[in-house]
């Protein structure tokens, strides 16, 4: 479904460039001797929710940290296509990825600004736009109209997101005093205030009750459909993953073991093996099996 309020620029760019929004090629991340990600390649598209799933320690968050510049990958190319301009994320500093390539992220353990108000959290996210409007603070210092208008626009955008996540009546609360589920949604709204083209969500449904989970699904669908951006999602909650994702990537021990639609991934034997384990007898090499049989036979 094409949203009513979608930006036409995105559509034309998508039509013009055949490349995906994000393409990850041969991403490898080593920490000393530990290989956290081993030669992983995948694509993420606009207007799609791409989920990365996998057992604990599979390297999902490490992929995110590489994408958002918090880690520098050992090997690999991370290309972001923003309206026809290519950004090589592996070469950029973390804050530049958010500022120039417009990749926004949330964190597994919520990182709001707890002592600042909900509204301030959303306005801080628009820092770069406001900084330009205030001409490196000087226009703002003298209260020029140009800056006042920009601030008003920033507050209105914050209001738009506050109404979307049902927090408009608590805009002046300290963010740290909100209930957990509201903090999760506020963090997503804050990331959206940076006007991203790719939104990376690290376990957004962790710790949410079923009702809050359903609200989250609705919010993510809204972001995908109405704002036309790509969403990359790490999640353990399969009800969220299977219901809303368009595309699922499964990691296990740092390797990609499956890639496809939710239905295809659900029935993939490799995925079932990774999640449920496998029959031990199949795993052992035949000579050891033979050896074992011989031993047990000898003793008997």
């Amino acid at each position: 479904m094409i949203g009513l309020f979608a930006d036409p620029r995105v559509a034309t760019a998508a039509a013009a460039a055949d490349a995906a929004l994000l393409s990850v090629e041969h991403l490898t991340m080593r920490f000393g001797g530990l290989v956290a990600i081993d030669d992983v390649s995948f694509h993420a598209a606009r207007r799609e929710i791409t989920a990365i799933i996998g057992p604990n320690g599979a390297g999902k968050t490490t992929v995110f940290n590489c994408l958002t510049g918090f880690y520098k990958p050992t090997v690999g190319r991370l290309t972001l296509n923003r309206e026809g301009t290519l950004f090589y994320l592996e070469r950029m500093e973390d804050f530049r990825i958010a500022q120039e390539a417009h990749v926004a992220r949330t964190f597994q353990n919520i990182r709001l600004f707890p002592a600042m108000s909900v509204l301030e959290n959303l306005v801080v996210a628009q820092h770069n736009a406001l900084m330009r409007a205030s001409v490196m603070t000087f226009a703002g210092l003298f209260g020029l109209k140009r800056y006042r208008d920009a601030e008003k626009a920033a507050v209105e955008k914050a209001r738009y997101w506050l109404e979307r996540i049902n927090l408009a009546d608590r805009a002046d609360w300290n963010a740290g005093n909100l209930p957990y589920g509201d903090q999760r949604r506020l963090e997503i709204a804050r990331a959206m205030c940076t006007e991203p083209v790719l939104l990376c969500l690290d376990e957004p449904a962790a710790g949410l009750n079923p009702r809050e989970s359903a609200e989250l699904n609705e919010l993510l669908r809204f972001i995908r459909d109405e704002h036309g951006i790509g969403v990359l999602l790490i999640e353990h909650d399969m009800s969220v993953v299977m219901e809303i994702s368009d595309h699922v990537i499964v990691l296990d021990y740092g390797r990609k073991i499956a890639d496809g639609s939710p239905e295809a991934v659900r029935s993939d034997p490799n995925v079932i093996k990774a999640y449920l384990g496998e029959d031990e007898a199949d795993e052992l090499p035949p000579e050891i099996v033979a050896d074992l049989e011989q031993k047990t036979g000898g003793e008997a």
């Binding site: 600004f113 600042m116 801080v124 820092h127 900084m131």
Partner: peptide, 21 residues
Amino acid sequence: LPIGRAWEALREDEIACRSLG
């Protein structure tokens, strides 16, 4: 002003600040 709010945000959480550009 934005710079002042950025100072306070930096005091609260530097990593979150980086993620917001």
